[in-house]
């Protein structure tokens, strides 16, 4: 058998869509107006706020900017934010993979209910996400007296902040993995199992490499939200300076104390995080487009 004949069945080349052809064009005037209006809207709502963050942060020069960030309370806020992300993301990875595995690889009754419930936190106000934990664990909450007798503090402490962050980031990773794993199907796992691989080996050697880019994509979005969450964390943190203030909360405190430069300086770090997230996300979408069947609705 000749390899020339085998090379013939290459990947099909689809007709590019989304391009202008003779029958699909608008007049140049219409085009320019539509592009102008669209870009104007984006400039007003996206570019301007982003630019203002950096303009205000550097309004009084580099020294003031550095002072705002080097402040001990700012540094401890940065530390706390990193700590919260470091705790919530591994939990979300495990839970997200488990959820996607159950939903995408198996058929069971009530699956759509489970998927809706995983998505539920998307449509709950962050303030309510914080509120529910206060009702459970706060001083006058259902478990408050018990926790107090045990000497445990959840609200106005790290555990509360982690819980509230877990609530708002709960759907992120499962949401990215479910459509991707459904699109992949079970054939690779079945192949590995018939070849004699154990379940754990099948997961590590076959499933995980298949989903790694969409997992990373989910982690990226999850991390951005975990580090930037404000409403849910504001409710449970108690805003004890230097102890329970995350970066977004610290921004609020500084802003309310009319320390504008410091507030925007810390905010600019968060804005940088957002820009890095966007860049990494765009890179993943461009480089691994086929392997990220994300819904992109966060």
């Amino acid at each position: 058998m000749s390899d020339a004949s085998l090379a013939a069945d290459a990947l099909p080349v689809g007709r590019p869509t989304g391009h202008r052809t003779v029958a699909r064009g608008e007049s140049a005037v219409v085009r320019v107006v539509l592009i102008g209006v669209g870009l104007g809207f984006l400039a007003l709502f996206l570019a301007l706020p982003l630019a203002i963050v950096f303009l205000e942060a550097f309004a009084r020069g580099w020294g003031a900017y550095r002072a705002g960030i080097a402040d001990p309370d700012s540094l401890s806020a940065i530390q706390l934010t990193l700590l919260v992300a470091a705790i919530t993301i591994p939990i979300n990875v495990v839970v997200g993979i488990a959820g996607a595995w159950a939903v995408a690889k198996h058929e069971f009754r009530g699956k759509s209910v489970l998927v809706s419930l995983i998505d539920l936190p998307f449509s709950v106000s962050p303030v309510i996400a914080g509120l529910v934990y206060v009702l459970l664990f706060g001083a006058q909450g259902y478990l408050g007296p018990f926790l107090k007798s045990q000497g445990l503090q959840i609200i106005f402490a790290l555990p509360g902040i982690v819980l509230a962050t877990l609530f708002v980031t709960f759907p992120f990773i499962a949401r990215e993995l479910i459509p991707h794993m459904q699109a992949l199907g079970n054939a690779d796992e079945e192949a590995a199992l018939t070849l004699g691989a154990s379940p754990w080996r099948t997961f590590l050697m076959v499933t995980l490499p298949n989903i790694k880019w969409s997992l990373l994509y989910g982690v990226l979005l999850c991390n951005a939200r975990a580090m930037g969450e404000f409403g849910a964390v504001a409710v449970v943190s108690g805003k004890i300076r230097g102890l329970t203030t995350t970066m977004p909360l610290h921004v609020e405190i500084l802003y309310n104390e009319y320390m504008s430069v410091a507030a925007f300086a810390v905010a600019s770090l968060l804005a940088l995080l957002a820009l890095v997230t966007l860049a990494a996300k765009t890179f993943l979408e461009w480089r691994y487009a086929d392997e990220i069947v994300a819904t992109r609705r966060h």
């Binding site: 951005a224 580090m227 930037g228 969450e229 404000f230 970066m247 977004p248 968060l270 804005a271 957002a274």
Partner: peptide, 10 residues
């Protein structure tokens, strides 16, 4: 991607 508090003060 941008934290809401950052958007808020901007």
């Amino acid at each position: 991607a941008l934290p809401t508090a950052v958007a808020g003060i901007a």
